[in-house]
Design a protein around this nucleic acid. Structure first.
Length: 321
DNA sequence: GGCCCTCTTTAGGGCCTT
């Protein structure tokens, strides 16, 4: 018999810039909890601190001492920051009340390898992956529970050319208290690891992932001398949307996230093109599409997912033709 | 840029993401 994994839809707080001055404290609290938890310890010592993992790569880069000092001092910064020094919360790791909704995705048959599905979205300074930078990231672990969502603005140290799209301006991100990518990556990786079940797999889902979010993430990781963890699997939900559109009798007009939202009559909570608002929509779109296509989480992983390694191999094959 | 579709595959155009 196939087990059934319920998706939960999380209510606010999510789509807002949250209240005063708690973002570093929340990261700090989160880090401390994760470090102290037996679950986290079981994931391996390299993940247990901000500075511990991928240190070989980090030590090879120019200015390593500066970055190491910054990463190492995050805890101290958190402790030192006062509410009066911050105008708004930039990072949010939240504990949310969950609301069970009807849509479910059929869990994989192979229950020995539980799959953590995390929907994510990024906002950037522009559409060019080589030149532009990430300025906002939001994630939502569909298994729900404590700390199931994560969102943050990111300081890109450059002009934001497309505020008209997402409403994020330089005034909001080019601030000393907003974390830069090199500071955020360890926290980001640690968060994902903390959601991964022991011995399980992780599947990161976004819309247009292959051509947009994934290459942006790869570039940011490389720029900061980190590597995408080899056990991270990615899924582009556009491939599911194409399958739904192609299905007989489908009235889906296009495979954009907006069209999918309208097609499935999903209400928009928050501002479209803000990371967490889009994550909310995609979470529900994913439930609907997997339901329509009768896909299990293991079939998602097997038939639709890719890793950085598999993606590179495919590119090499293509280029060698 | 990657993917899909077609007026195709020795290619070109449109969609999608910001």
């Amino acid at each position: 018999m196939k087990a059934v994994m319920s998706f939960s839809h999380f209510l606010l707080p999510r789509c807002q810039i949250h209240t005063a001055g708690s973002w570093w404290k929340k990261v700090h609290d989160f880090s401390r909890k994760v470090e102290n938890s037996s679950k986290f310890q079981s994931l391996g010592p390299n993940i247990c601190s901000f500075h511990g993992f991928h240190s070989k790569r980090l030590n090879n880069i120019e200015g390593k001492n500066i970055i190491s000092r910054r990463v190492n001092s995050i805890g101290q910064q958190i402790a030192n920051l006062t509410h009066s020094s911050l105008n708004s919360s930039r990072v949010e790791i939240s504990e949310c009340k969950s609301v069970h909704i009807e849509q479910k995705i059929v869990e994989n048959d192979d229950t020995t390898k539980p799959i953590t599905i995390i929907v994510f979205d990024t906002e950037t300074t522009g559409p060019k992956r080589k030149d532009d930078r990430i300025i906002e990231i939001a994630l939502q672990d569909l298994s729900g529970g404590k700390n199931s969502t994560f969102q943050t603005l990111v300081n890109p140290d450059r002009i934001v050319t497309n505020s008209h799209i997402h409403g994020i301006s330089e005034d909001m991100v080019c601030l000393p208290e907003v974390p830069r990518m090199e500071e955020l990556i360890p926290i980001f990786v640690q968060y994902v690891k903390s959601r991964q079940k022991p011995g399980g797999q992780v599947l990161l889902v976004s819309h247009n992932c292959k051509s947009f979010d994934f290459p942006f993430l790869v570039n940011e990781f490389r720029r900061c001398s980190y590597e995408i963890p080899s056990d991270w699997h990615f899924l582009d939900s556009m491939s599911l949307a194409r399958a739904v559109k192609k299905a007989e009798g489908s009235e889906l007009s296009s495979i954009s996230l907006q069209s999918l939202r309208e097609y499935y009559k999903i209400p928009l909570i928050g501002q479209a093109h803000r990371a967490m608002a889009d994550v909310n929509v995609l979470t529900q779109v994913l439930q609907k599409t997997t339901h329509d296509l009768k896909l299990t989480s293991s079939s998602l992983l097997k038939n639709y997912a890719f890793t950085e390694t598999s993606n590179n191999s495919k590119k090499k094959k293509k280029n060698s033709r």
